[in-house]
Design a protein around this nucleic acid. Sequence first.
DNA 1: CGGCCATTTGAACGCGCTCAAGCGCGGTGG
DNA 2: CCACCGCGCTTGAGCGCGTTCAAATGGCCG
Lengths: 253, 253
Amino acid sequence: MSYEAITAKVRSGGPGASFDQMTHGLNASAKTRVTALLQRNARRYPAGSNIILEGDESDPFFLVLDGWVALNKSLEDGHVQTIDIILPADVIMPSAEGVSAFDVHALTDVTVCAVPMQELDKLEAADPPHMWTSIRALSAAAKARIAERMLRLGQGSAEMRIAYFLTELYLRVSACNDNQDMVFHLPMTQQQIGEFVGLSSVHVCRTLRRLSRNGLIDTSDHLKTVINDFDSIANIAQIDINQLKAEILPSDC
Amino acid sequence: MSYEAITAKVRSGGPGASFDQMTHGLNASAKTRVTALLQRNARRYPAGSNIILEGDESDPFFLVLDGWVALNKSLEDGHVQTIDIILPADVIMPSAEGVSAFDVHALTDVTVCAVPMQELDKLEAADPPHMWTSIRALSAAAKARIAERMLRLGQGSAEMRIAYFLTELYLRVSACNDNQDMVFHLPMTQQQIGEFVGLSSVHVCRTLRRLSRNGLIDTSDHLKTVINDFDSIANIAQIDINQLKAEILPSDC
DNA sequence: CGGCCATTTGAACGCGCTCAAGCGCGGTGG
DNA sequence: CCACCGCGCTTGAGCGCGTTCAAATGGCCG
């Protein structure tokens, strides 16, 4: 079963929802123009492929239309660290100077839209305040996410990191959802989760199983991750949910 | 001895160098105007004090004129993680929404300049391309720095983290220097270094001593940190120096 | 049914932590 | 001037969390 087919079951809002989110706030004519631009520059990548490699030349700016993307850095010994995970309607900025600071890796089948700088300038000319406000909000949210994760990467236990990971991604996946069922799909192997939270895949497994055995989560159906006891998870992760929501989710949603 | 007195010995360029760096690229009239703005809004904080607390309301934008600043996040159990260290001529963006995502902590006596949003807009009106270009370069460098550090925080050994820490700060401190003597001042306790690299102060001590015993560095005069064998340090840190320089240093320098 | 990949579990090791005591140095007050 | 104090650095001992290595199990697809 494809990733889209799976998430279609779990998420509300079908294909096209990303476009709505991204053009949200624009007037009608700008909206059609931007949507056209996005569709024109859209490209597909299969799960497991690299969209950009660290050190490659790249456009400064990508929009993720669909699928999950990991931003990876790696050491010579082969160890990989995922710096951030990018979800649909979010933005990838591989950094200035035209050279990417990390691998951009497709966790699932992915549709992204490379936005060349001159196109961006055109958009800005069309609707300057909205465009940059929106970008600034997205990148502030990304910074906050990374800081929060870094805190736990440096100071937290394995359990705390996993609990935080589950909470963060649940919040982000269901940010624009109104249903409260605490069920979502994590299209990542335990290896990839480990690369994200700084643990070996073996210990990710052990930690998830412990949470599962204690009834806090349910991973028996590995297409759906269920958080049974959100308060306990948030407590283990040392999260103040409302504060975290305000910080890591772009406000307009 | 004050921090300024110490660094005056080590660094080239006296007081006022920060102003020059920050207004670099502006025309003469803009330069005087910006310098005046900076001096008008400048505030001093003693070493050890907090400039902003996590969750506080704050201006969106600070310029560090002098001294070292740590951006800290902490867990309830008291563990602290330093997300980034800000040096003179660099910028603090405590994040959008007017609420700071972290403590802003003075590692030394510090002079910062809070720039309210409306002032920023005025500056932008005066010289729009320069201002935002410069800010974007600074924040791209900050992102790259944090990613590079996060890689080692999640995947590297204690030795690698310490070696990377030394290299990063040496590069940044001496970025605008032409002398190549590999001597600089680190105004941080081992406790604070530990909070930055995710190690206990005890282990920071052990690791520094080991590097020192092997002749790679010299910390006997704790006002000056000396890197004796830069290649070995860079090798331990798994750094490609030229690539790192390009990534983490704002280009105009 | 067989092959492949992800997950699970066990065993043993070791890195980095905690706790605790000793040392060195600068500042302060008698 | 020296005694004292406090803070940061140093070093030792012992422990525990998370790692590595290895093997078994499970699930999906050809």
